[in-house]
Amino acid sequence: MAKNKTFETEGSVIDFINSIADETKRADSFRIAEIMEQQSGYPAKMWGPAIIGFGSCHYKYESGREGDMPMIAFSPRKAAITLYLSIDFPAKEKLLEKFGKHDTGKGCIYLKRLSDINLDVLNEMIAASIVHTKSR
């Protein structure tokens, strides 16, 4: 069975965020980390080289593959900030309608900058994602 590429590391979240060249993305990343820490009650930890996660949960797929992943996370990628929230928490689509300028992928939400989105909705989505993940 393949080994997971993303796992909690001892890397410094502050050093990682400070290494972001784009000033706005760096400031937004510190703010997202603060919001996610407040909402989750967990400290920010590095997961792999570029994901900042909060808390952890164990998963197991029908295929037998299993591992640990952050309960919620984000990554300040070059093209966009990627939010990793529960894929199917209740009211997700309704909240995304009020979220602001973003794109979605298979299990991610992409945004260019915090000023493009509604922070109250972000807080609601994080809280709903955590509740949903804990209930599973």
Rank of each mutant, 00 (worst) to 15 (best):
G55T: 06
G55N: 09
S56I: 03
C57Y: 15
K60T: 12
Y61S: 09
Y61E: 07
E62L: 13
S63A: 12
S63C: 09
G64E: 08
R65A: 13
R65D: 10
E66G: 03
E66A: 13
E66N: 10
G67Q: 02
D68A: 05
M69N: 02
M71G: 04
M71C: 03
I72L: 06
I72K: 08
A73M: 03
S75A: 15
S75F: 09
P76W: 02
R77F: 09
R77I: 12
K78W: 06
A79V: 10
A80R: 03
T82C: 11
L83E: 02
L83G: 05
Y84Q: 02
Y84F: 15
Y84D: 01
I87Y: 07
I87D: 00
I87C: 01
D88C: 10
D88S: 14
F89I: 06
P90W: 02
A91N: 13
A91G: 01
E93A: 15
L95T: 02
K98H: 07
K98N: 10
K98P: 06
F99C: 02
G100I: 00
K101T: 12
K101S: 12
H102A: 01
D103M: 15
C108D: 00
L111F: 14
L111G: 05
L111S: 07
K112G: 04
K112L: 13
K112N: 13
